[in-house]
Simulated assay, not measured.
Amino acid sequence: MKKIFSLYVLVVVLLTGCGASESKLETVTYGMDSTNGVTLNMEIKYDKDKHVQETITKNTYNYKEMGMNKEQVKEYIEKASTMYKNMSGVTDTIEYGNEEAKETLKIIVKDVSKESLPVLYSINANDDGTVSLDTLTKNFEASGFKKINNKE
């Protein structure tokens, strides 16, 4: 009985610890309408302190609207994405269809070096290596992005 109680206490402690370490993230999405055949949407996940934890960018490239064929767009995307191909914390997937290409760029901020963050977001990290939601969204809005929604 004592072993069962000890096991029960261990499970409760582990479950409580796991739940406490995972804080609830909030999400806001920004987008930019098609400009020359490229549509951009970025989902930003942030913590209660408004530090960006993760971003998922979904880009759609319409070949016809870009005035390019599939191979030209492929070359364009691959050239543009070379800067973060081997960056830690960044995954980039691209699907090339008959009429458009879809790119998904996922960035986990804590896994990216502080020096690489300005390359990805065009802003400097805070002294502690975090990215401020307010600074990032102000930068996006100045670049023409519009807030699409805010999920809580």
Rank of each mutant, 00 (worst) to 15 (best):
L10A: 06
K151V: 09
K85Y: 14
F145I: 07
E54Q: 08
K74D: 08
Y61V: 02
H51Q: 12
K102I: 14
S88L: 12
M83S: 14
G144P: 04
I4C: 09
N126R: 05
A80C: 11
A101I: 00
D49S: 12
L120M: 09
T93L: 07
I4L: 13
T29V: 15
M42S: 03
V28Q: 03
S21I: 15
T82V: 12
T130I: 08
K147I: 12
N98Q: 08
Q53L: 05
L14Y: 06
K2P: 15
E54K: 12
G19C: 10
I108K: 03
Y76V: 01
Q72T: 08
V112K: 00
Y61W: 03
V90I: 13
S6A: 13
P118V: 03
Y63Q: 02
N150D: 10
K24A: 12
S113D: 02
V38E: 01
T130E: 04
K110V: 04
E26N: 14
Y96C: 05
E152I: 03
Y121Q: 02
K24S: 13
D33K: 10
S113F: 04
A125P: 00
F145M: 09
I108M: 01
K50T: 01
D47E: 10
Y30T: 04
Y61E: 01
E95L: 09
A80R: 07
G144Q: 07
T91P: 04
P118H: 02
M83P: 10
S23H: 13
L7I: 15
M87A: 08
T137K: 08
L40S: 12
N139S: 06
G97E: 03
S21Y: 10
K114W: 00
V11T: 15
N149P: 11
I94A: 04
T93F: 05
Q72A: 13
L136R: 01
K3F: 12
G97T: 11
V73F: 06
A142M: 13
S122R: 06
K2E: 14
D128K: 03
D128P: 06
T35L: 09
L10T: 09
K79F: 13
E103F: 04
I108G: 00
N126T: 08
T60Y: 01
N126C: 14
T57M: 05
N59K: 03
Y63H: 04
N124D: 12
N36V: 13
T91K: 10
E71I: 11
L15M: 15
P118I: 03
T55C: 08
G129E: 00
E71H: 07
F140R: 00
I108V: 11
T104S: 11
V13T: 10
K110L: 02
K138W: 05
V109D: 00
V109I: 11
L120C: 05
T91N: 05
V28A: 03
G67D: 06
G129C: 07
K106T: 15
D49P: 13
A80P: 07
Y76M: 10
S122V: 08
S88G: 08
Y46M: 01
K48D: 04
L14V: 15
Y84V: 06
S143L: 06
G19L: 11
I108N: 03
L14N: 13
T104P: 05
N139T: 11
Y30N: 03
D92C: 08
L133D: 00
Y8N: 12
G89R: 00
V90A: 01
K114T: 02
M1L: 15
K45F: 07
L105A: 04
S23L: 11
S116Q: 05
N150S: 10
